[in-house]
Design a binder for these strands. Structure first.
Lengths: 208, 208
DNA sequence: GAGTCCGGATGACATACGTCATAGCGTCAT
DNA sequence: ATGACGCTATGACGTATGTCATCCGGACTC
């Protein structure tokens, strides 16, 4: 189960877009002879199932996947298999995602914007026990501070995508006034001018 | 310049996410010995420049790229080099995108959700002069009909992402009432309940 | 030349939204 | 046990939004 001895690093690849998944697998096969993609998953649940079936050395996880997102997968895998190293590979440079990834036990956070050659390098480094995070992103995550929203505020904001306050109230079994109060608080905490802007800000920061 | 004779298909790859670009390049190198990725671009302008420098047989274009989007690139390339075959490779199954791609002269429209093996197959087919489009997507595009919005309505809707009517009016040098009128029309045409929903619908359909 | 369409504008109305004050209840820490 | 905080609620106020009727000028069609 340990990576260090055998020399070859066994990787589980989780990514919902099939073509990108196949392409990344090809990239690793072509450029990293010391790395084996031993399993590929298209959603979060499948990732968990495959990981439990044969625990790899490194799990390479996309965040936005169907059924179960990559950050939740990271959390569960880290709890079940503390020796398994986790690298998040995502499109989004959202400070909140990085924070959640690190507190979920991930060792690496890599952007799809990064050069292709960095992928294998990152996998090797986390397999050796190092951490891999872009310094500027880490800085931004620290500078931005924590999510100031309460659970309810976040929940309400998540539903504020065109619905009326009444509709949101119906879904959460709250009164319309309460919903308006939560939205007002969220708007102020995020420095937004209205619910739409507030939602966009929260989403950009990775707080939704 | 013609592909048919030499046997090897020369492909220009345009994709803004460097890692995905490298991965797709690796995928083709690994699985398609008859295909050469002769150039790689990270944005629309670079794509045009590289294509003019050495016209490939097939241009594989992502849609959402900086500086110039893939559909605009397709339009220009098709006008300048009618023999160049164009394949759009995108995340989005938006009927409006497909329509615009085909009317821009693209021969293929491929989703990143599709299996990795289909990429090389699609490139070979368009290089032979065939068209490659998923039947269900084409059906949806036809069923959905055309964009019902006028230019002004579309323009106003594009700015309706949290701004007040007044702010939109300022940017477009219109009166606030006029902006509200356009939004109202767009909302009705799209069957939405308000501007936010209208914007979401238009975006999903690829009309923005 | 009359009709039609689009861009642009105004005014009026009902509803939705954002804000504030206030209050009751539960939990958790000090 | 007191206070701080989060969740829920109500009422009231001003503003923003969505709708409708109506209007004008230009362009294009028949």
């Amino acid at each position: 189960m340990a990576a260090g001895q055998s020399g070859r690093i066994r990787v589980l690849l989780a990514e919902d877009q099939a073509m990108v998944r196949g392409a990344i697998s090809a990239l690793l096969r072509l450029t990293a002879p010391d790395i084996d993609v031993v399993a590929e998953a298209g959603d979060g649940e499948e990732t968990l199932a495959l990981a439990r079936q044969a625990v790899p050395d490194v799990a390479l996880l996309d965040i936005e996947m169907p059924r179960l997102d990559g950050l939740s997968v990271a959390e569960r895998l880290h709890a079940e298999f503390p020796l398994l190293r986790i690298v998040i590979l995502t499109t989004f440079a959202r400070p909140g995602y990085l924070r959640r990834a690190l507190s979920a036990g991930a060792s690496g956070y890599l952007l799809k914007d990064a050069p292709a050659v960095e992928l294998a390098a990152a996998i090797r480094r986390v397999a050796r026990g190092e951490r891999v995070v872009q310094p500027d992103l880490a800085f931004e995550a620290l500078a931005l501070g924590d999510d100031p929203l309460t659970d309810r505020e976040r929940e309400v904001l998540r539903l504020a995508d065109g619905r009326t306050a009444q509709a949101i109230a119906g879904e959460l079994h709250l009164s319309e006034g309460t919903v308006r109060n939560y939205l007002s608080e969220a708007i102020q905490k995020l420095g937004a001018a209205n619910r739409v802007e507030a939602r966009r800000i929260a989403e950009e920061r990775g707080w939704l």
